[in-house]
Design a binder for these strands. Structure first.
Lengths: 342, 342
DNA sequence: AAACGAGCCGAAAAGGTTTTCTGGAACGCT
DNA sequence: AGCGTTCCAGAAAACCTTTTCGGCTCGTTT
């Protein structure tokens, strides 16, 4: 006798097994399980029972090979570590998971070579489409127009306008932040933000200024660019208070910066929000809910971005031909650090 | 004529195309490209050139169908949002990516039904194995012994000792934390930690006590369990200082708690680390590097856990039969919040 | 009674690759 | 010349599923 095979690793049951047990041909078994009409109800039931007893799961490889579509997509992140990729990834996974589509996850770690490698591997697996997730909102090089499957860029738009990109509306984010502060009765608003080489920093500042201008106001001083850290928030806040002790709101480019700013405000005896309102961007709950008081922040709706990218990819796979950069609105998550002036 | 097909979505080239262009049979083309020996060098070169010209990529579905192995694994997380899954996921993705294995990402969102659904879907895609990543270190129900592929549990071990699980050494983490504080000359050490229903909280406390006992010492008071938040850290620190103003170190159950503790210490005029040393767990850089001073913290080496799980799955796929819970050591990331007593 | 239609099932092909086996050609040796 | 050996290429099967098409049976209609 041949060596007994490990029972716990037995070959998965095939349609042939089911057909044999049900006493029909594989063709009939297939039709019975897939709800085709040319099967008698009684026969169908026999097949379904047999499949159940053998706990049959159709081999999606074979099906994909035949159908030309695999029901898989590639999710290519440039940087899993950064916290922006994760919510986008969650949104996309959510949107796909509901629709029987499986997601290949690849992390390029910001390396173009590795990215290219992953694209090749994914194409070898005949994914139906790709989502490319960036780690910042600055445009990135396109994967090219010659790919055999549709591609959607999320968060970081493609440089090629022929590609389809889904990004949060950073300018609008700056606008709604200022509008919220204005609604709270603030008028002497300063802006402390992060690295000026980030498009997001520039666009948020632009939106903030534009909303102020619409109200006939202007920022107190110039936007203070620096880095995305609490330390910078503290340093900039100290300088700001020295020069402009009369501010009544600080719009911060990130939640981290906002935390630094709030620490300095408190240490210098300014009450938040009674004397000075503080706002951040990103709505990173670990920071916003832990600060004293909890921090009002602009949420970039990143899960939404991921979901929208997934839906866009769906319709692109179905044949729709869209292109250009689509922006999604952000929203203000209001907490204790902003409140109307008494 | 038939409708012209969209050139940008042309069918991928197949081995048949390559063989035709090279003037050989598909069998020979396959052997040439896969380095089989029964091909003349000159013929092989012709095939390779043809494949190159057509930018041929073998269809991994077909290969997988034939080989019975697909070179894919499923990564099943219970909670992508939590920050513990991500490093594990990165480590696993890293280990697999190097070896031509692609990773299906599925997020069950802590829902057993959804998890079961994903397992079925992954088995339908004939993954070669599964990694199940938990969101906390408490044991979780096994997926069962009847699965047709090997499974490795990471971070959250399986309740079934017949399964293989890879977890960080939480007891050891508590030990090395205390050992570091002892090495800094501290002897009056208090412990403020999180939710007592988390095994990690219990085990870290256990390890800490055991290391202290080895040195002939004991904790100052009982471990103070609460929740994993800055707010609890502040509240507990205030109580602690009221009862035991003479402590010289606080071991905190998480970096968030540690930040809260440090804020209260500073506000009450205790210097860190001169008067009181503070340590956290998790080594979450966004918190450890932003605090004043930067926070010493125990790193759970989660990427390592992910990599180890990937390697374990590899060898299980290759046939090795391991089981039980394997613990991986943690390490102390030393920063400014701990320093030797002068 | 013959013809026809409807309903149901099975045979076979297709999808792309790898592997095994067969066979042909060239070459060396007796 | 005949035989054996080596080398190389191709034919065919296999993996598993879906779909098309042909054919069988049975019931209905003229």
């Amino acid at each position: 006798m041949a060596q007994a095979t490990d029972p716990s690793r037995s070959q998965p049951t095939t349609l042939t097994d089911v057909a044999r047990l049900a006493g029909v041909s594989v063709a009939t078994a297939s039709k019975a399980l897939n709800g085709r009409s040319q099967v008698r109800a009684e026969t169908r039931q026999r097949v379904v029972d047999a499949a159940e007893r053998l706990s049959f799961r159709p081999n999606l490889l074979a099906r994909g090979l035949l159908a030309g579509r695999t029901g898989t997509v590639g999710l290519l992140t440039s940087d899993l570590e950064g916290r922006f990729s994760i919510p986008i990834l969650m949104g996309a996974e959510d949107a796909f998971g509901a629709g029987e589509v499986a997601v290949f996850l690849c992390d390029a770690r910001g390396d173009a070579i590795r990215e290219q490698h992953h694209v090749r591997a994914l194409l070898g697996r005949r994914v139906d489409g790709l989502i490319v997730v960036g780690s910042r909102t600055d445009p990135r090089p396109s994967l090219g127009r010659e790919l055999p499957v549709p591609v959607v860029y999320a968060y970081a738009p493609s440089e090629d306008p022929a590609d389809l990109s889904i990004v949060p509306d950073s300018v609008g984010a700056g606008r709604i932040a200022v509008e919220h502060l204005l609604a709270c009765g603030r008028s002497r608003i300063a802006h402390i933000t992060g690295d000026p080489r980030y498009l997001a920093a520039q666009e948020r500042a632009l939106g903030a200024r534009s909303a102020l201008a619409d109200a006939g106001l202007a920022l107190v001083g110039e936007p203070r660019f620096g880095v995305w850290s609490e330390g910078w928030g503290r340093a900039a806040a100290a300088m700001l208070l020295d020069q402009h002790p009369d501010i009544d709101a600080v719009l911060c480019g990130s939640d981290q910066i906002a935390r630094g700013v709030m620490d300095v405000l408190r240490e210098r005896g300014h009450r938040v929000p009674e004397d000075v309102a503080v706002m951040g961007f990103d709505n990173w709950k670990i920071l916003t809910s832990a600060s004293r008081p909890p921090l009002t922040s602009v949420d970039m709706n990143l899960e939404q971005v991921g979901r929208a990218a997934a839906h866009a990819l769906f319709s692109a796979i179905a044949g729709a031909q869209h292109s250009g950069v689509e922006t999604l609105p952000c929203r203000v998550a209001i907490r204790g650090s902003t409140a109307p002036l008494a």
